[in-house]
Amino acid sequence: MRESFPSPPTRFPEYRGRFAPSPTGPLHLGSLYTALAGFLQARSRGGAWFLRIDDLDPPRTVPGAADRIQRGLEALGLHWDGSVLYQSQRLAAYAAALDRLREAGWVYACACSRKQLAAHAAGVYPGWCRARIGQPPPAAHALRVRVQGGTLAFDDTLQGRIAQHLETEVGDFILYRRDAVYAYPLATVLDDAAQGITEVLRGIDLMDSTPRQIHLERLLGLPAKTYAHVPVLVDAHTGQKLSKQNLAPAADTAEPGRLLFHLLGLLKQAPPAELAGAAAAEILAWAVENWEVRRLAGIESIAVDARRFQP
C-alpha cells in the first residue's frame, strides 16, 4: 500500500551504500542501471559505496560471473570502496544469528512440502508448524521465523510510505531452506549491518521483501536503514523485466562513455547533449555533481530497447 511521498532528507551523515548482484549471469543493462544509481547516490553525498556478491545459492552460481561483474563495473569507472564481500564466506555469521533467534523462540522447523504449500491457495503461510517451536527438528525441514503484530511501514525515498501486514500478507517466512541454503532476508540484513550500510538503493522488484528485513533487523537489534527503490528496466518489445532470470543479454561496456550517457537518460538525469561523446570519467564527474535521485520518484518501470547495448 502506497501513501504520500516523504520529504527528502537535508543531511547525509556518513552515507554508506552498496551494490549486491548475484553471480548468476552477466551484467545486463538493468544491473548497470541500478549500480550507477547507487554509485551516484553515494558519491554525490561524499559517501562510500561497497560491492557485495550474493553467491549463497551454489547451483545458480555461474563460474567466473563474479569476476566478470567486477570487470564490468570497472570498465564504467564504478569503483567500489574496500574489499568485495562474498556471502559464501559468511555462513558462520548467518548460523550464529539463526541460533540467537532460535534460542529466543522466534525460529522453528517447518516440514511442510512444496506440494502442501502449493495446495494452500491463500499464498500466505498458515503457521502449520508453529507448534514445533522448541522441539527437535524433523530430518527434512526448513527454518521459519514468526511474525506478529500490526502493520509494518517504512518511508521509501522514492516510492512513498510502504505498509505491509506481515501476518496476513506474508506469514512466517523462511530463513533457512530445506536444501541447506540461507534465505535472502536473513543474509542481506546481516551483511548490510556488517558493512555499516545506511541506505539500501535497489530495484523496486525487491521492495516487497523490505518489511521482512525490517522485522529481522528489529529481532536481531541491528541498526535501521533508509531505503530507495528505483524503477526497473523492462524490454520495450516484450514488456519483461531485464533480469538474468529472463535471460537479459550482457551489456556492451566497450564504449563506456556512450553507455553511461544512455543510462543517465534512463535515470531521468537529462545529461547535456555536449556530453554525448565525452569520456566516461567526464560523464561520471558531471553525474556526481548533478545527481538528483528524486527525479525517479513514483516511477515503477522504464521501457528500453536493450538490443542497442548488446555486444
Rank of each mutant, 00 (worst) to 15 (best):
Val230Ile: 15
Gln148Ala: 11
Glu282Tyr: 03
Lys244Ile: 01
Ile299Lys: 02
Ala37Gln: 00
Val147Thr: 03
Asp155Cys: 07
Pro256Asn: 14
Gly82Ile: 08
Ala139Pro: 14
Arg307Val: 11
Leu29Phe: 06
Arg60Asp: 09
Glu274Leu: 10
Ala279Trp: 05
Phe309Ser: 03
Gly47Gln: 05
Ala109Asn: 08
Arg52Val: 07
Asp172Phe: 15
Ala187Ile: 00
Val189Lys: 10
Thr151Asn: 05
Glu300Pro: 02
Ser113Met: 05
Leu76His: 02
Pro271Leu: 14
His237Pro: 01
Val288Asn: 10
Ala96Pro: 10
Ala20Pro: 00
Ile53Thr: 04
Trp286Phe: 08
Ala180His: 11
Ser7Ala: 12
Leu56Lys: 04
Ile69Val: 08
Ala66Glu: 04
Val234Thr: 10
Tyr227Gly: 11
Arg71His: 04
Ala281Tyr: 09
Ile283Cys: 01
Arg258Val: 10
Tyr176Trp: 08
Phe261Thr: 05
Ile133Glu: 15
Ile197Glu: 06
Ala251Tyr: 01
Glu199Ala: 10
Ala142Met: 11
Trp286Asn: 12
Thr24Cys: 05
Ala280Asp: 06
Val170His: 08
Ala142His: 00
Gln310Val: 13
Leu158Cys: 03
Asp252Tyr: 07
Ile197Met: 11
Leu186Ile: 03
Arg114Leu: 10
Leu85Ser: 07
Pro59Ala: 02
Gln41Gly: 06
Ile197Ala: 05
Gly82Tyr: 15
Gln159Glu: 13
Asp205Trp: 05
Leu216Val: 08
Gly82Trp: 02
Ala122Ile: 02
Ala92Tyr: 11
Ala193Gly: 02
Gly171Ile: 02
Ser243His: 09
His229Gln: 07
Val232Gly: 05
Ala248Thr: 02
